[in-house]
């Protein structure tokens, strides 16, 4: 722990802070392609339940995932604040994530992120690889690969 305090010019990473349900989550900005407003989502039959469907993003068909359903929360409530975060991933290409609201961009260094509880047994925490402290609020940092890759059983 003491070692962490000494690394003053540690690498800082920018996170986009979004609201999902009543909690704040952070997404590494380097994988975010852009953020679009809610638009018509076309259902894909037989797709996993947490994929409401696909959208037309400037001529590309992009699958959209509901973060709420993926994390076992109740279904999305579409409001004027609802946004789709478009992620550009190396393996999966473009994937959209439906979130309730986009709040801000924060910059966190490794020392400001608490990695200690990532081995907790609770189901929800498997998508999170740490908790960041921004001001007096807490931001759960998403493990992008876990959220996209893991197949619902």
């Amino acid at each position: 722990m003491a070692a962490e305090l000494e690394t003053l010019d540690e690498e800082k990473i920018q996170y986009i802070v979004v609201m999902i349900g009543s909690e704040q989550y952070g997404l590494d900005i380097s994988v975010v392609d852009n953020i679009v407003r809610m638009q018509k989502i076309t259902r894909v039959p037989k797709a996993p339940s947490y994929y409401p469907g696909v959208i037309n993003l400037r001529g590309e068909v992009v699958p959209v995932m509901s973060a709420r359903l993926k994390m076992g929360l109740e279904e999305d409530e579409i409001t004027k604040d609802t946004r789709i975060i478009i992620l550009r991933l190396e393996a999966q290409g473009l994937v959209g994530i439906l979130v309730d609201e986009v709040k801000e961009v924060i910059t966190l260094g490794e020392s400001e992120i608490d990695r200690s509880n990532q081995n907790s047994n609770k189901q929800d925490t498997t998508y999170i690889n740490g908790i960041g402290k921004s001001g007096d609020s807490l931001v759960s940092i998403f493990e992008i690969n876990a959220i996209i890759d893991e197949v619902e059983v």
């Binding site: 996993p48 037309n56 068909v61 995932m65 999966q92 996209i148």
Partner: peptide, 27 residues
């Protein structure tokens, strides 16, 4: 024909998607 993307590609009934003249997506 557009691909549905890798994440929901485990779907045998749907071979892809297309974008219609009005911008809507159809399977």
């Amino acid at each position: 024909i557009k691909s549905l993307g890798k994440v929901i590609d485990n779907n045998k009934l749907i071979s892809g998607a297309t974008i219609l003249g009005d911008g809507e997506v159809a399977m």
